[in-house]
Design a protein around this nucleic acid. Sequence first.
DNA 1: ATGGCAGTACTATACTGA
Length: 278
Amino acid sequence: MQIATWNVNSVRSRLEQVLAWLELERPEVLCLQETKVEDAAFPVGAFSDLGYSAVISGQKAYNGVAILSRLPLEDVRIGFNALLPDDPALALAKQKRVISARIEGVRVLNLYVPNGSALQSEKYTYKLAWLACLERYLKVQDADGDPLCMVGDFNIALDDRDIHDPKRLSGGIMASDPERDALRLALDERLADVFRLFEPDTGHWSWWDYRSGAWDRDSGWRIDHIYLCEELQELATGCLIHKAVRGNEKPSDHAPVVVQLQWPPDPGDEEDEDDWAA
DNA sequence: ATGGCAGTACTATACTGA
């Protein structure tokens, strides 16, 4: 089973590219961020023609998330307020950044984390509040008992290996200690950044700014992540950034990231069963 | 330090992104 995440920077202006990539790669699941479209105008038909059903949570011009899947989507949850019926969660729900569904028994959670703009900005305060809400949300979700695959555009480089110029950029927006700490707190040492299970080195990016020739100079950041619970970490066989997609005509500024999972697991693979005695 | 590029809403330029 392959699960992918891609900030497409408008699903309508990127539609032909997304369809072409899906036809080529055929992941079971693709999570989109920055769809920038209201639900009624989301191009569901184009995806269903390729065998993908969709669950969506969008708004005009900004934000917007969606999950496309060739497997049945169950128990869809939109917004933090689906699990946290309180005022802070409800206030954050105005921006459409959170959607999840159960797919073949896996809880797939798709997030578009706020950017934060600048450290002294109100948007940065919003980002930190959003991450604190994510921490609470994950704790409640834990009660499901379903294995978790959390993907998205996190707008945070977890450590300095994830930035092309850490001397200049570390400590600034997307690389400051408060936001890194807030994300790590939400991960709670239970969720692993699956890319790092396979690749310890720097130099791997998922986002290149449109400006300043960032793509030509390969000046990127790795801010699009896939996090797995312990059960799924054991079953991951690889995680790839589809960098070539960023070189397309009229590209998104983000590349897709894909994890390969051996799911559902083979019945004979369980290591901790105690039914050896006969 | 600042700007740069792209999409949307709206029809020229402002806002936002990261």
